[in-house]
């Protein structure tokens, strides 16, 4: 019957649409149903966050363990305060861990790399990483390099 093919067509159409959404979620945006872990918050103050953006990844030993949730200015210390959301199962970071802003490749995106310290006390939810290393600013680097070579010439 003509009615039947019509209904089957519409059914397939709707299913295809839903399938498309699922594909976009899983394959394109890399959302996997299992990886939706609970997270806890960590803070870190940087002298200069230049170039870091919200949603940048947070890595440990090159493995992504969280993302940057917010960036704002700490009014009292004049530093950039970065809020990170870290996977709950990585809850064994020592308090003297270091957070540094790194660049993927020469011109790539900025991300935060955490290197583990040696303290036996662990960072808790809402804790702050005090040992930070700011973003590498190319202009500063060039400035220093020039200053150095000028100094050498004067000798």
């Amino acid at each position: 019957m003509q009615n039947r093919t019509l209904e089957v067509g519409v059914g397939l159409f709707v299913l295809a649409g839903i399938l498309a959404l699922v594909l976009l979620a899983l394959r394109v945006s890399g959302l996997s149903p299992a990886s939706h872990h609970d997270t806890y918050k960590l803070y870190a103050n940087f002298d200069n966050i230049a170039g870091l953006t919200v949603r940048a990844k947070v890595t440990l030993a090159g493995v992504t363990i969280g993302k940057v949730a917010a960036i704002d200015l700490d009014r009292d210390s004049f530093t950039g305060r970065v809020t990170m959301e870290v996977d709950k199962h990585v809850d064994n970071l020592p308090t003297d861990s270091t957070a540094s802003i790194l660049t993927a490749g020469l011109l790539g995106e900025k991300y935060i790399g955490i290197s583990v310290g040696g303290d036996s006390a662990l960072l808790k939810d809402g804790g702050t990483i005090h040992d930070t290393q700011s973003s590498l600013v190319l202009e500063d680097l060039i400035g220093k390099f020039l200053l150095n070579s000028v100094g050498k010439d004067a000798k």
Partner: peptide
């Protein structure tokens, strides 16, 4: 209202 969002999703998928 129902069709266009579904079509847009399929468009993105086949585009990718």
């Amino acid at each position: 209202f129902i069709s266009l969002p579904l079509l847009a999703l399929m468009f993105s998928v086949v585009g990718v």
